[in-house]
Design a binder for these strands. Structure first.
Lengths: 191, 191, 191, 191
DNA sequence: TATGAATGAGGCTTCATTCAT
DNA sequence: TATGAATGAAGCCTCATTCAT
């Protein structure tokens, strides 16, 4: 019973994330989500107290999933620091390459939802600290700024990926960008 | 008469951009915009045919204004190429430092508005071409990818600026990031 | 459940027809209809997609109901043809005598609604064909034109009925007009 | 000046009648009328106090114009009574044949406009009295009912004219119907 | 747990009317 | 007389949320 409920909750969260990301928050109707999962609208309210609550839960769940991936890469001590940055970049791009229908990245809700906003800031802080630790290992100067730059570069590559209508050889496309990151964040004197 | 109308149209566009940027598209009521300008709701419809049309016009106007700034900097041939990149970064950050109430950057409408989407893509293309030309002068490798990185870095710095509650010395904050860009995109062999 | 929904749909259609007919299309507020049925405005949209759709459905339903009556009379072979015309006239006048609050016959929507317009033309065609067949049996000359005349006469009698403030003896009023039709469309040589 | 003003008033009335008849009352915007005449919206208010007032004036003017035609025909004593009925029918059909873009006959306003309603009733009464007098000359029985029938027939022929997409030979079309009326209302014993 | 019919607040939009020029 | 920019009341429609079953 509990297992079954968990299943349904997860199904709802996955469908919600998918649709919110494709259509944006305001354009998403709860009936869309309910239809996608195959349940009645009212059922959503057995698991989430409001549209906002569902949105928040879906985003936070995804953040946590993504965080686990990044943590795992960050801990691969057999890789040189800049190799780990490249791996994080590769993971990031592969993630979005598999989600090219998600045309929208919904940021306006973050301002209106206190809880989500805080959760998001915490996530970003943890994420940045992980990157910063790698930057320090690589002996990069201006660690914080370089970390911001790294994150901006990843977002920019993601945007390119999502906006471009067709990418013929996705594997090569991603590798070129990963290589750029690898060499760009490689301090030569650091062997 | 014509002057007066132009004035009012511009007042509306400025108010609209301000409010859309603060509250997001869906959360903005046309009555908010009308109140801000000090006209009746119906008056908006003398200048714009719909909420969507007003939004589009406000965004496009801002893009054009921003474009003029960038073009001017890009043409300052007395500066070395990487100096021009730094100047574009500085301009970008100063622009948003003056607009810290704009908590939101509205991207979800871009997917829903064909005309705006195209206008945006054209703008981005022109913008990238300008940066790419500077990158070429600087003899950077992987011009396109480096350009994407540059733009991502600027966006990331902007986000940091907008998210952080308080920045004590804004001037220094910006200069540190500008310096980072200047040195980061400086190819030493290029004299 | 299905039964309940059907009931409500019919209640809405009946109320809508009544109010549209009393006030005209433009003067009718959907809130009037909702209030009359005793439901919320939004409920109407569970059954009909728009004001126009509701109007169309209400008219078409009434046409079909009326058509059944006429068909039944047209098939009463025990009556002489001109007796059947008289019976159709009687039915027509009784129908409107029971609906004297319907001050308005809404024709302007027919031009603006493609679907309704077609439905109406089909209905008129079937109606005319039925009358024409009776006219042929009666061996009237100029069957089509006589049919048009018959329909015009019915409408004119209906108008008189609707316009006149008071009709003392409604039964006699109707019988006089029915008798007129009976004798007017009776070809004496046709025995 | 007065002449000029009269001219403009008449131009407005003619344009108003045309557009109201083509689009219906509610669908007609005063800006449509103003554009058609080539004046500003505000100008209409120099001649008419409201949309309703303009509509009423336009209808009443047309009624009076039509009435003059009918009166003239009704007084042509050189014609036998049923010839005069036929002539009135011919006049009626020619009038609408020249106005086939007037798809709409606006009746719903009549209920909402006390003044117009009374004017209309007066007009109809005078019209009917004229027809009734001719019917009496023709020694028709049931004069009032026959008169109603006559008017219904005219309306029905008018509807046919307006609804039919194409009428190849308009002259013949009208003559057939006029002939029908002539013979139908001809009492043979009445010499 | 699950359903889905019903609700009703709230926004966008239209357009007759006004009034300063 | 003539203009047309500005007004604002009022209606259609959407959709998150509730609740009886």
């Amino acid at each position: 019973m509990s297992a079954k409920s968990d299943d349904k909750e997860i199904l709802i969260l996955e469908a919600a994330l998918r649709i919110f990301s494709e259509k944006g928050y305001a354009q998403t109707r709860l009936s869309d989500v309910a239809d996608e999962v195959g349940v009645a609208k009212g059922t959503l309210y057995l698991y989430f107290s409001s549209k906002e609550d569902l949105f928040r839960a879906a985003i936070i769940r995804e953040l946590h999933l993504g965080e686990a991936d990044v943590e795992q890469i960050a801990n691969r001590s057999e890789l040189l620091p800049h190799e780990r940055l490249a791996a994080i970049c590769e993971n990031h791009l592969n993630y979005f390459a598999a989600r090219r229908t998600w045309r929208i990245w919904i940021t306006d809700r973050f301002e209106h939802d206190q809880k989500l906003s805080e959760e998001m800031q915490d996530f970003m802080q943890r994420y940045m600290q992980r990157i910063e630790r790698i930057m320090e290992e690589e002996q990069v100067e201006n660690v914080r700024i370089a970390t911001l730059a790294f994150m901006g570069i990843l977002d920019s590559f993601r945007n390119e990926l999502m906006m471009q209508k067709q990418i013929v050889d996705m594997h090569q496309h991603i590798q070129e960008r990963v290589n750029f990151v690898r060499s760009w964040f490689h301090r030569p004197n650091n062997i």
